[in-house]
Write a protein that binds this DNA or RNA. Sequence first.
DNA 1: TTTAGGG
DNA 2: CCCTAAA
Length: 745
Amino acid sequence: MVVNGGGWNRWMKQLPSGVKVRRTGPTRPRREFGGFMSVGKTAKKSYIYTLLLDGPVVWSENLQYGGEFGDIVSNPERHFLLQKRLEYGFHGFQVPTIPRAPRSARRRGPNKKKTEDSQICAFELLASLAGKLLQESESSSACSNASEGNHRSFDEDVIKHERHAEDTLLKEECFDQGSSEESAFASEISSQNIGQKLLSKRFLHSERDVVSERTSNRADLVNVIPTFHNCPPKVETGSLSKANLCNSKDPMELQVEFPTMINLENDVKLPSLREHVSNASFSKHRNDIKLVGRDDDENCAGQNKSSTKVKAFRPSVRIGDRKIRKLLTSKYWKVAPKLRDCESFRSDGGMKPLYNKRKSCYSRDRYQHNTFYKRRKLFDRGSVVLSDGGFSSESVSNSPEKGKSGEKNGFNGMLHGAAGVSSSVISRQGSFHSKDSHVKLSIKSFKIPELFIEVPETATIGSLRRTVMETVTAILGGGLHVGVLLQGKKVKDDNKTLHQTGISCKDNLDGLGFTLEPNTMPASPSIYTDDPLPSLSCDEPETLRSLGAPLVDSVISDALFETTLPSTNTGALVESNLESVSCHNDSLTDNIMSDSRALVVVPAISMEALAVVPANKKSKRSSELAQRRTRRPFSVTEVEALVEAVEELGTGRWRDVKLRAFEDADHRTYVDLKDKWKTLVHTARISPQQRRGEPVPQELLDRVLAAHAYWSHHQAKQQGKQPSGSLKITDSPVDRNGVEGSHSS
DNA sequence: TTTAGGG
DNA sequence: CCCTAAA
C-alpha cells in the first residue's frame, strides 16, 4: 500500500534500523514490524502505527494511516519532533522509557524567547548557577552548625572541580557530534564517567550541539538527564561514614555519605542505572524553557501542539514551596493530624494520600504518587516515622511486556538513578534527651550523586534552576527509600529498636548515617507513545512538590549541581536541616514494620530520619494538585479512534476503550476518554459556531451521536462481544433497542 | 481500580 | 481536567 503517497515510506527510510513500526488498531492486536515497513497490504486505514525505537520504547507515536502520519512527514513541526525523539533515542539517552509524568508533567513549551540567553552556554549557566546556589546554601547552612565551615570549603572545592571538569568536557566534546552513536554516551558516561561531573557538561554540550544543529529551530528542548548510576542503595561502602564534612566539629552531627558516591570513586559497581529520562526530561525542559506552556509528558501530539498548548503553567517549582506548604499544611494535617505532635513530621507529611488516586492506572501517575510518606506509630518506644517512596514499589510495574513497561522503566530508571543520587545526609545528632531515651538527630543534608541536565542555550537561568529542581524533586520525590547506616553498615532490620541496634542517645551518632535509596522498582512513569518528552515532567509535579518545595529551588539546585559531580562528592546540600525531633511513641509509626519496602524505619531516630526525607513533605503533592496535567486536546485522529472504540465497546467500558484504542497513549486515561466522550457528545449537539478548538469532522460527530444514542439504549450490556464492529450505529442510532445481540456483527 | 457524574 | 462517591 502506499501510505500517504509514499510519505510513510520516505519517512520510514529515515528511521534507524532499530526502529520498529508497530501497528495497532481497534480490530487487531498490535504487531511489530521491523524496520521499514512492512505495513504493506495489511495496512488499513484504521490502523495506528506506532514507531518504536529499538527495544524499549523510546518514543512512539500513533500514526493513523492516511492521517497523521502524513502530517508528521509533511509537517515541519511534527517532523521535527519526531526527529528529535529519534535523536534522543539514539543518542545516548538510550532509554526510551519515558516516565510519564503523571499528570504533572509539564514542560514549558518551546521557548518563546529563544533569543534570550542564547549565547550563554549551558555550562556557564550551570557554573554561575552553581555558584549562586553555593552561596545560598552556604548562607543557609551557616545556621546549621559547626559543620558549615567545612561544607563551604567542600562545596567550593567541588565546584571548582566541576568547573574544571566542565572545561575539560567542553574541550572534549566528544559526544556531541551528533552522530547517533554518540548517544550511547549517555549511558556510558553515566556509568563510567560518573565520577566526573563532566557528564553534565557533556550533556549540555552534546545537547546543545545536537539540538542546535538538528533542531536549530527549536532550542527549547532541555533535557535533564539524571544519570544516576544507581547507587546501589545497598552498597554500603564503608567509606560512607567517612565523609563527614561536618562531623569533625560537631560530634553530634553525623554525616553519611552514600554508597553511591563511594562507588563512583571506587568504580564499584555503579551499575549505570542511569535512566534515561530522555523523553521525560525532554518534555520537562521544554516546559521550562518555554515557561509558558508546558506540555505534558508524552505525546507527540502534544509536542506538535506544544507550542500551541502553552497555556497552563503549573505552579512552577519555585512557587511550589510556598504553595505547597500551604497546601500541605492543610492537607497534610488532615491526613495526619497526629503528626502534629511531632513537628518533625510536618515535613514529610502524608502526602501520599493526596495524590494516590490518580496514579493508578497509568504509569505516569505512579511516580507522582509515590512521594509521600507514611508515618506510623511505634509501638515501643519512640515513634518512628516511615517515609517511603511508596511510589517505587507501587508504581513500578514490572511487566515489561508492553511498551509501557519500557517507558516506565525509563522513568523508573531515572528515579532510581535519582534515588541513587544518594544524598549524603549529614545527620547530626542532637541531643538525645528525650526522656525515654529518644535519640535525636538532625540530618543536615543528603547528597545527591549526580544528575545530568541538558538545557538549551536559550534557556534562562530561571528555567535552568527549575529544571534542576524539578529533576531533583522528581528523583527524590519518587520512591526513595531511606536506609539507615550504622558504622558503615546498612541496618536492614527495621524491626530492631534503636537500642538494639546500638543507637542510643548516649552514643554519639557518628556512626549513624542515612542513605536515600532508589526504589527498588522503578516507579517511573512510562513514556508515552506519543510524547517524546514525557520524561520527568510527569514526575516532577508530584515529586517536585514533594521535594521541590521543601528544598526550595536554590537548595535543590545546589544539590543537583553538586550531584552532577558525584565523584567529587560535592556535598549537595539539601539543606534540609532537619532538626531532630522526638516524638511520642504512640503517634508514629507502626506502619514502619509493615512496609518493608518503605523506608527504613528507624525507631527512635526515625523521626528525624524522616525529617530528612521530609524535605519532601512540603512537596508532597503539596501542590496538592500539583499542577493540573497539561492540557492536551484530542486530535482528530484520537477522536476518531475514540469514536471507533466506543462504537464497538459502548460507553460503559472506558477501560476497554483505553486498552483498545489508547493503550499507547499513556496520557489518556480511561477517565480522560470518558470525559472526552462526554464533551464530544456535547460538541455534537451544539452548533458548529459554538464549538471551539480543532474542529472535529462532522462525520465523526455524527458517529458520536449515533453511538451515544445506540449505547444509551443498549447499555453496553453484553460487553464482551458483540458490540464491536457491528455497530452501525451511525445508521440508526438510537433505535435498535433490543438488538443488543443482533448488531454484533 | 473502574465507573459514573458533577464541577 | 479534576475530584469523588460507589461499586
